[in-house]
């Protein structure tokens, strides 16, 4: 067992527990975006920052990947942490403003403006879909490709994957909500899950009173215009 202090409260946890788990055990809320129970931690979004150490040694770490250490002093809501979190949310808004998940998080943290150049990315590279596909669906159909600013998520060679089992889990976990749904370009669709259920928007004319289960998605409307 390891004993550490979170916001001055002592807590004893098993070896290998992350700070995020220890904090949630005590009931301290830490916002997360790229973390999901049942998937490995990845540390991509940095939203879960906490401050560890004291004085000039104090530093910010991502709590979902940082393992608990004996005697560690952790602050989950210091002013430095809150500032960093707001900045991260502002940057996320700058890259992917249409995401409901990000909008909600930003609102909950009192982010009222976005001062950076506005972009409309359809993916924030959080890696949730990749881990979902690999660790829970055992399909390994999608993954990261390229690097740097060309980094993207998708299937090898950008063609429909033959190991994808059309489960739709990647869409389900995606906080950006739009990438996986390529209904207006069906041949490029990775998942095509909807096709298996009922062709909702592929054949919009015949099903125009149907509701797609991807309700934030307006891909079919865009196609129509």
């Amino acid at each position: 067992m390891i004993t550490l202090r979170i916001n001055r409260l002592p807590v004893s946890v098993e070896d290998g527990t992350t700070l995020l788990e220890a904090a949630s055990f005590l009931g301290f809320p830490i916002p997360t975006l790229c973390h999901m129970d049942g998937l490995s931690s990845y540390g991509a979004c940095r939203l879960c920052v906490v401050e560890i150490g004291e004085g000039p040694e104090a530093k910010l770490v991502s709590s979902c990947t940082y393992p608990a250490e004996e005697g560690l002093k952790v602050r989950t809501a210091s002013s430095r942490v809150l500032r960093a979190r707001k900045m991260i949310l502002e940057l996320l808004l700058a890259s992917c403003p249409q995401s409901k998940t990000i909008q909600d998080l930003a609102a909950a943290h009192g982010v009222r403006q976005q001062r950076f150049k506005q972009e409309y990315e359809d993916c924030i590279l959080c890696g949730l879909c990749v881990r979902m596909c690999q660790e829970q669906m055992m399909a390994k159909a999608i993954g990261f490709r390229n690097r740097g600013e060309k980094r993207s998520i998708g299937t090898p060679f950008d063609i429909k994957s033959d190991v994808c089992r059309l489960c739709g889990a990647c869409m389900y976990v995606c906080p950006a909500c739009q990438l996986r749904c390529t209904y207006n370009e069906p041949e490029k669709a990775i998942c095509g899950g909807c096709e298996n259920l009922t062709p909702s928007c592929i054949d919009k004319e015949r099903f125009d009173d149907m509701m797609c289960y991807m309700d934030p998605c307006v891909a079919c409307e865009i196609e129509k215009e």
Binding site: Q134, A141, G143, R147, P156
Partner: peptide, 25 residues
């Protein structure tokens, strides 16, 4: 070539995405 990457993935028992990821990285 695409075919070569597919062969490598099959033979090494690794998912094609991993091989493709390394090849594009």
């Amino acid at each position: 070539p695409e075919e070569a990457l597919r062969t490598v993935a099959n033979e090494m028992g690794r998912p094609l995405v991993d091989v493709y990821g390394v090849a594009t990285f």
